[in-house]
């Protein structure tokens, strides 16, 4: 959660960073290590690979800091480097299946809702278990490679539509349509999980 981060981007001394100041660089790593790791992990689904991608990303960023012109925010720039590092690994891992540029359509059948169990107002303390968290992570893993990064950047990392488009090099319209498909897909999976959870609980209560 963004609230957990103590530093903010405003605290970073960009001139010092560009001059190769280690303390300034350490501040950047403090600020972004968790966020870049989360993005890499969601994309790759493997903690070791994600760790390596984050390491590569910070090394690339350190080397390329001269070329950071400040047109986008430092955060957007770093997310882009980390995303690309993770994407390269993903392509190496699954060379045949990754086609990030595949067009996405909004209106095909797979986005039509099928689950209508109403879990919207269940108290979180009842259902937010370790198992539920694992299920949430698995559902993200099932998103297509086209939809997953959009959802992670926009809805988990909290980037704006424009920032997400900048990181992924896609239009705002593409961000919006992919985000919507990703959300519908995840809603479907969580609904399925929570309706099963509710049935189990009813059985236990009988």
């Amino acid at each position: 959660m963004t609230d957990d981060y103590v530093l903010s981007e405003d605290d970073i001394d960009l001139d010092a960073l560009r001059a190769g100041d280690r303390a300034a660089f350490a501040q950047v790593v403090d600020l972004y290590a968790d966020r870049l790791y989360n993005v890499a992990l969601k994309l790759l689904g493997d903690p070791m690979e994600a760790e390596d991608a984050v390491q590569e990303a910070f090394i690339s960023a350190y080397k390329a800091i001269d070329s950071f012109e400040g047109r986008s925010s430092l955060g957007t720039w770093l997310y882009r480097i980390a995303y690309n590092a993770a994407l390269m690994r993903l392509r190496k891992k699954r060379p045949d299946t990754v086609s990030i540029d595949k067009p996405v359509r909004l209106d095909d059948g797979d986005t039509l809702p099928r689950q209508f169990y109403d879990w919207c107002c269940l108290p979180e303390r009842d259902f937010m278990t370790e198992e539920a968290l694992v299920h949430m992570e698995e559902a993200i893993g099932m998103l297509s490679d086209t939809l997953r990064p959009v959802f992670v950047l926009r809805d988990i990392e909290g980037l704006s539509t424009a920032e997400t488009g900048d990181v992924l090099d896609i239009s705002s319209a593409a961000v919006k349509s992919r985000l919507h498909r990703a959300r519908l897909f995840l809603r479907e999976h969580l609904s399925e999980y929570f309706s099963g959870w509710a049935r189990e609980r009813e059985k236990e209560e009988d």
Binding site: M128, V152, D155, R183
Partner: peptide, 15 residues
């Protein structure tokens, strides 16, 4: 449930 899905990931989606 769409709104709740988004909220759950916002609150718990960070690793």
């Amino acid at each position: 449930t769409l709104a709740r899905t988004i909220k759950l990931y916002r609150d718990h989606g960070h690793v």
